[in-house]
Amino acid sequence: MDKKISREILKNWKVLVVDDEPDSLEVATRMLKFHGATVFNASNGADGLDSARRHKPDFILSDLSMPELDGWGMLYELKNDRATLEIPVFALTAHAMVGDRERAINAGFHNYLTKPLTPATFMAQLLGLLEGVPHLAEALETGKEAHE
């Protein structure tokens, strides 16, 4: 794995990370920021929904079990809103929650990332998933222009 991931690969990307565990949230945020992304945080689904509507992120990473509104509930709301319908949402699933991955895809999550998130694998996996989304893959290829 000598293919070095560019520091600036997510420059000008807006990413929303939703997780009720602050440490987990911070780790993801730091890794994304390190690669140039603008990261918004939310600690539950309701905040995540607000943030998504307000900031229109390029994609969302969301934990599944959270207080107030969980990942499922937030996804449902996002998919029912024309403004947020197009935003790819990737689930963050724990190793233990076996059935969740399948359910997540069926429920409308774009794909999933398995916790724990470590720098050694996180970016590789994330980029792999982003390449599966055509308009994001294109953006990765060409580099994203800053919106406004």
């Binding site: 440490d23 730091r30 916790k115 720098p119």
Partner: peptide, 11 residues
């Protein structure tokens, strides 16, 4: 907590 440790050490 382990995930947090691993995450931060990795970072």
């Amino acid at each position: 907590p382990l995930n947090a440790i691993l995450g931060f050490t990795g970072i």
